[in-house]
Write a protein that binds this DNA or RNA. Structure first.
Length: 431
RNA sequence: GGAGGGGUUCCCGAGUGGUCAAAGGGAGCAGACUGUAAAUCUGCCGGCGAAGCCUACGGAGGUUCAAGUCCUCCCCCCUCCA
């Protein structure tokens, strides 16, 4: 490795990934080399990962880029139990089938980010070794290594002792510890990473591995993702932004990032893009329209990583057309592949609904159309929104909620542009 | 197993038998101001609708002209005691 090259630790540190490590110096040394095997677990509690998982995912991406071997562990087995960490109450217990379906979907998603080619990374499911454990054997071999007294002092459990904690959840820590032990033994994994709420579970795994294998292992946690407003972006929050294109379109995904608060731009560029940190640092002093360009770059690069270059370009193009997004100056973020000039009128990324010409001959009341194209969740909401001045056809504010939208609103391309508020567009293609 | 306290609309949380689609806060949506930002202010915030109707307060029954509010049984959660 050449002198100037950054180690994985340096990269993760300077990009703001590291919240806590078990032992800073040894880990720093360890990551200077190559071929370290590390792992992060992903819970298959939903059919798709969401933005909250992006920090762990990106950390694995960096590890791989630095020549290490990440293991992405889908928690098909642990999900059967339910992790109480960071939860204020017990989660619904999921069925085996639900979890299996989710686990498969998540495997596919992780493949978008990591190269699971031979020896480069591993994609495992802990159901493979947890589901068939024998209870008595497990208690004798693993259970004896855990002190209940000590477990009760863990923050994640202490919190739950106020509200109630079931025995099944109390065992989660043992299973996750067993995972680490297992991965260490089978794959030589010596570093477990995860969100900061995983700190207790990670420490427990390190202890177990030392007791059973007499091997030294390490842990690292990431800050839990929140906006500078303190809003969580977790999956239990409203408005979840999924990584699956069918749940959150690339266009909406792009829009999510471009709406980033000013104060978060630099941090998010560091965490969610692969742009060189030196270029990102320069974004700190950007203001006004240049800061918005930085947001465009953030949105573009983040969308590219998740949905690919073409989808990112399409989403960018739609933003240019719809919001008059300015092209990014060539001297800002030179490493970004964001298009720097306007291109042809491609706003295909704006959700489009096909309609027949007949439907518009007599005209359709605006509120019904808003409901129909899914801009509003109910006709009642549509009435309210339009009555309050939040409805637009072709950029013109709609005056009455039952105003008829008809063929006279068609533009030269045979389209009608509907808009709710400032940001939510829907295009109607009439044929 | 015993005693007590709870389960309310997306979340938290108030709720005297009628004036409860249900206070208040948060989230969300829209308007103004802006930079597709934040902050702030304003309006909205179960569904369908012209009035009005329908669906909701853990579940099932019951009392009543009328029940989130009373009774019975069941389910779940919490606290203390065993």
């Amino acid at each position: 490795m050449s002198m100037g090259e950054k180690s994985a630790y340096d990269v993760l540190y300077e990009r703001g990934f590291i919240e806590q490590v078990t032992e800073e110096e040894p880990i720093r040394e360890l990551l200077k080399g190559k071929g370290i095997t590390c792992y992060i677990g992903f819970d298959p509690t939903a059919a798709s990962l969401h933005i909250g998982s992006l920090v762990p995912i990106m950390s694995l991406v960096h590890m791989q880029l630095c020549g290490h071997r990440p293991i992405a562990l889908v928690g098909g087995g642990t999900a059967l139990i339910g992790d109480p960490s960071g939860k204020t109450e017990m989660r619904r217990i999921m069925t085996r089938d639900e979890i299996d379906v989710n686990a498969e979907a998540i495997k596919g998603q992780l493949s978008q980010y990591l190269d699971f080619g031979e020896g480069k990374a591993l994609l495992l499911n802990n159901a493979d070794w947890l589901a068939d454990l024998n209870y008595v054997e497990f208690l004798r071999d693993i259970g004896r290594c855990f002190s209940v007294n000590r477990m009760l002092t863990a923050e994640s459990y202490r919190m739950r002792l106020e509200k109630g904690l079931s025995f099944i959840e109390f065992n989660y820590m043992l299973l996750q510890s067993y995972d680490f032990y297992y991965l260490c033994k089978q794959y030589g994994c010596i570093l477990q990473m995860g969100g900061n709420d995983q700190w207790g579970n990670i420490l427990a795994g390190i202890d177990l591995t030392r007791r059973l294998e007499e091997k030294k292992t390490y842990g690292m946690t990431f800050p839990l993702l929140a906006t500078s407003q303190g809003h969580k972006m977790g999956k239990t929050e409203k408005g979840t932004v999924w990584l699956d294109a069918s749940l959150t379109t690339p266009y909406d995904y792009f829009q999510y990032w471009i709406n980033t608060e000013d104060a978060d731009v630099k941090r998010f560029l560091s965490l969610f893009t692969l742009l060189p940190i030196e270029e990102i640092r320069k974004s700190e002093k950007l203001v006004d329209s240049e800061l918005n360009m930085a947001k465009a770059v953030l949105a573009f690069e983040a969308t590219k990583i998740t949905h690919g270059h073409d989808a990112a370009v399409a989403a960018w193009g739609a933003a240019v057309n719809t919001f008059g997004l300015k092209p990014v100056s060539p001297d800002l973020f030179p490493s970004s592949s964001i298009p720097r000039t306007h291109m042809s009128q491609d706003i295909s990324a704006v959700p489009t609904v096909a309609k027949t010409r007949e439907e518009f001959v007599t005209g359709i009341p605006a509120f019904e159309l808003f409901y129909d194209v899914d801009l509003c969740a109910s006709k009642g909401e549509a009435r309210r929104v339009i009555s309050q001045g939040g409805g637009y056809v072709n950029g013109e504010q709609i005056q009455a909620f039952d105003e008829k939208i008809s063929i006279k609103h068609l533009n030269e391309n045979g389209e009608i542009d509907l808009r709710k508020g400032k940001k939510q567009h829907r295009k109607i293609k009439v044929s």
